[in-house]
Write a protein that binds this DNA or RNA. Structure first.
Length: 865
RNA sequence: GGGUGCUUAGCUCAGUGGUAGAGCGUCUCGUUUACACCGAGAAUGUCGGGGGUUCGAAACCCUCAGCGCCCACCA
């Protein structure tokens, strides 16, 4: 450092440039060590319990999770500062299918399937992957400054959770809420296994679309199908109830060719009149939609294929043929019989394939376990309708009701290996028994091979993590939880399930008091992020580049309730700039002796600038408080941003520089210290790292996490100070415009002299400092009248008359327009009669002001040569 | 098909009855002793179209047109 720069005042403890990396790691360690977010910490208020959504088990922190975590941590820190006992319930391990899928894909890359590996070895592999990826996710979340009490986190699969899952299954079974029924599932005839939806890849295949005539003469109907071979298993023909072409046939029977069986013609809303012929064959045992229709109309299931996809039991010549060979043969035979009305080939349509071997998936009838949702859904819906649970923003409530009011029974069995095994055992004589947590299945009985849907266990999160079914102290204290913060995209999958499972298990008490829903993060053009599009924002990369605070502030600042946010790198850069601004403001304050020592000076003893910033601070804190209580993160951030940057940095610090350079500065130093102290506290939830660093360095305090949340002091709100500073701002802005128009460089000093209103003249030295006005004898060559004062200036030469005239004329036009608007209103009898008095007063004031402006501008123009 | 949103400055978005806003971008000037990740100034909108309610509409109602998301479906 040169001697010249070292002679400048320095701020102890703060580097001259802000580098987030220098402080982040150490501060996180500090928070972790102090165990700030454990529920056992001292508290003065009720517990604030939060349920965290689960991050994807991919080992990488996704930007969407970064948003989840940021908003949750933001609330946690604020509640903590308000004296609440804060407890997080981190949902780490819900994504059962996703987890299994990741591991299966890894195996697939090596040409291995889970069936090669066997159940036990496969499950072990998933556990290994979970340990690895879970650890990586935790490390990444720490970068965000999220301090969760991880001791509460329990893997879905561990003993405690398992006990809860088994207990709940048994309880629901015993109360008749779980039943077993037949359903169509995806089946791979090569792997000889059922496939979950995620294991089925849909491809556009070239198939055929054939129209076939059933029946004879008047009593006939033409159906259209892509799978002619399944006609051997038809149980009915369905048409739309309103279709005039077929109305007369509904309820009658028609002859099914080849098998020579009479089948009914039924009416069902599911049939589309405009598609194909408007008549569809119903093959209940080999198509999911047909299955549903068959259930509704009591149509028998006719199984025509075995597990290998070979025709079987039709009693026709086609038995023993592969399904695809049978397709050709059936069409050929029907053609021979003159029953093929038309054929379209190739016909491109989506067909499911086994994700492992690419074999075409065959829908197959099988027995599955179901949850009867009607009673559960009703209590979950009632909890929201009664106001017991609040959905924020309220606008998303219809979406919740739409789902929960129209829910079908929930199939909870999955043909997977990773998850809780269904606790049902089958005896040698087809006995069925649910085996609870403390029971043992009889010898010779076999357990159901399927596992439970991941949402069945994760739906229990809000109570099973507290040790349910035991009546634990935690459960009594923390249930129901205060809030769930998550994206609206998961409302249906997880939130609805948690509502149902919890209200059932916890005697009708819903799992949360508030469900706060945020939107999704999209790219800078509002497009969905996807790897293939290459527009994915990596939170780690941007934290490396701009700091965790910048990312968090950007996310919080974009979080308008329930709406998506577009996120661009530029925005994160802007937030980083804000952090740097705070850093430099604090440096300036510390260089100039700002402090928090002793009580604030008497308000009446302060100058108007100090009173003004205290007034602004009070209003800011008041607004931020009420916005955060409504989960309006974006607007709260916006207000803090503008208070810090505009009010504090651009105006207060600038207007006070003159005072800080003088001897009479003790009061201002204390006021500035107070403002920064309070601002750091209020910003801490959204920018934890930099505020912690600045505040601790500045005040010597231990940590903001344990500091008190700042409250608005309404006695500081000062209308007269605000009015005066508004006038000063107007003067400064006008003179700057004038200087700018006249081509005077910002640093160039100009002789100037104020006359006019005494309250403003009291601050003329501050104005002079800010506007670079010299205090010396001169002969005015220009003068400006603004806000009750007159400023004479010596431009040491002629002023640019053209520029000045154009500026004044522009102002005059604007003022005249404003005046006219006001006049029209005031001349309107209806307006005067009906508008509220307050509005009329405002318009009158506006008229008075514009009239005065016009007068001033007109005379200024007249004297301008 | 059912549901639900959106359309405001070049871009992304706030704004639920009283003179149209922010961030970024753009243009001009400037390194003044916190900060060029900065300061000062400036430009920029028939608030998607059309009706209606109202003294007054970006906001409320109707309608039309685009765009999006969720769910279902594609025989």
């Amino acid at each position: 450092m040169s001697s010249a720069s070292s002679s400048l005042p320095t701020s102890p403890g703060l580097a001259s440039t802000f580098n987030p990396a220098d402080i982040e790691s150490a501060l996180y360690q500090k928070w972790l060590k102090a165990d700030y977010f454990t529920a056992d910490a001292a508290s003065t208020k009720e517990a604030f319990t939060m349920v965290l959504p689960p991050p994807n088990v991919t080992g990488v922190l996704h930007i969407g999770h970064a948003l989840d975590q940021t908003l949750q941590d933001c609330l946690a820190r604020m509640k903590r500062m308000k004296g609440f006992e804060v407890l997080w319930l981190p949902g780490m391990d819900h994504a059962g299918i996703a987890t299994q899928n990741v591991v299966e894909k890894q195996l697939g890359a090596q040409g291995i399937s889970r069936h090669d590996l066997g159940r036990e070895a496969f499950v072990k592999k998933v556990w290994d992957w979970k340990a690895e990826s879970g650890g990586a996710i935790l490390d990444q979340m720490k970068r965000l400054g999220v301090s969760v009490d991880w001791s509460r986190e329990r893997f879905t699969m561990d003993e405690g959770m398992s006990k809860a899952v088994l207990s709940l299954f048994k309880k629901m079974y015993d109360e008749g809420l779980i039943y077993r029924a037949e359903r169509i599932i995806n089946w791979c005839p090569r792997c000889l296994t059922a496939l979950s939806d995620i294991e089925v890849d849909h491809q556009d295949d070239a198939g055929e679309f054939v129209q076939i005539k059933y029946g004879e003469g008047e009593q006939s109907i033409v159906i259209a199908t892509t799978r002619p071979e399944t006609m051997l298993g038809d149980g009915a023909v369905a048409v739309h109830p309103g279709d005039p072409r077929y109305k007369h046939l509904i309820g009658t029977k028609v002859l099914l060719p080849l098998v020579n069986r009479m089948i009914p013609i039924i009416a069902d809303e599911l049939v589309e009149q405009d598609f194909g012929t408007g008549a569809v064959k119903v093959t209940a045992a080999h198509d999911p939609n047909d299955f549903e229709m068959a259930m509704r109309h009591n149509i028998p299931f006719v199984v025509i294929m075995n597990e290998h996809g070979v025709m079987d039991g039709t009693g026709t010549e086609f038995d023993g043929m592969d399904r695809f060979a049978a397709r050709v043969a059936v069409v050929a035979k029907l053609k021979e019989m003159g029953r093929v009305v038309s054929e379209k080939r190739p016909y491109i349509h989506a067909v499911g394939h086994c994700s492992r071997c690419d074999t075409t998936v065959e829908p197959r009838l099988s027995k599955q376990w179901f949850v009867k949702v009607a009673p559960l859904a009703k209590s979950s819906a009632d909890a929201v309708r009664s106001g017991e649970v609040k959905i924020e923003p309220e606008a998303l409530e219809p979406r919740y009701f739409e789902w929960i009011d129209n829910m079908h029974d929930w199939c909870i069995s999955r043909q997977l290996w990773w998850g809780h095994r269904i606790p049902v055992w089958y005896g040698p004589n087809e006995e069925v028994k649910v085996i609870g947590p403390d029971e043992i299945a009889p010898d010779g009985w076999v357990q159901d091979p399927d596992v439970l849907d991941t949402w069945f266990s994760s739906g229990q999160w809000a109570f099973s993590t507290f040790g349910w079914p035991e009546k634990t102290a935690d459960l009594a204290k923390f249930y129901p939880t205060s809030i769930l913060v998550t994206g609206y995209d998961i409302l249906f999958f997880w939130v609805v399930r948690m509502m149902m499972m919890s209200t059932f298990a916890m005697a009708g008490v819903a799992p949360f008091k508030t469900i706060m829903l945020h939107g999704l993060v999209r790219d800078q053009f509002g497009k969905k992020m996807s790897k293939s599009r290459g527009n994915v924002i990596d939170p780690i990369e941007f934290m490396d580049k701009y700091g965790a605070d910048a990312l968090r502030f950007t996310l919080a600042r974009g979080a308008n309730p329930g709406t998506d946010q577009a996120l661009a790198e530029d925005w994160i850069g802007g937030s980083r700039n804000f952090a740097t601004k705070l850093w430099n403001a604090m440096r300036f304050a510390m260089m100039n002796g700002a402090n928090v020592t002793g009580p604030l000076p008497e308000i009446s003893s302060l100058n108007a600038i100090d009173r003004w910033i205290l007034s602004r601070l009070s209003k800011t804190l008041r607004d931020v408080e009420s916005l955060l209580e409504k989960y309006e993160f974006a607007r709260a951030c916006e207000i803090l941003y503008h208070f810090a940057w505009d009010d504090l940095c651009d105006w207060y610090l600038e207007l006070s520089k003159e005072a800080f350079a003088s001897n009479d500065k003790a009061a201002s130093q204390r006021v500035l210290g107070h403002v920064l102290d309070q601002l750091m506290r209020a910003l801490h939830p959204v920018m934890p790292f930099i505020t912690e660093e600045l505040w601790c360095t500045f005040t010597g305090g231990e940590s903001l996490v344990n500091a008190q949340w700042p409250t608005s002091n309404t006695t500081h709100i000062d209308k007269s100070a605000e009015k005066l500073i508004t006038a000063l701002q107007e003067i400064v802005t006008e003179v700057r415009r004038f200087r700018n128009d006249q081509g005077i460089k910002p640093s160039q000093k100009v002789p100037g002299r104020f006359t006019g209103a005494a309250d403003i003249l009291a601050y003329s030295s501050a104005l002079r400092f800010l506007l670079k006005l010299e205090d010396k004898e001169f002969t005015p060559t220009a003068s400006l009248e603004i806000a009750g004062i007159k400023l004479d200036l010596d431009l040491t030469g002629s002023i640019d008359v053209v520029a000045e005239r154009s500026r004044l004329e522009k102002d005059l036009v604007a003022a005249k327009k404003d005046m006219q608007t006001a006049e029209v209103k005031l001349d309107n009898a209806s307006f005067m009669a009906k508008a509220p008095a307050q509005v009329v007063v405002e318009i009158k004031e506006r008229l008075a002001k514009t009239t005065a402006d016009i007068e001033r501008l007109t005379s200024a123009l007249a004297t301008l040569k």
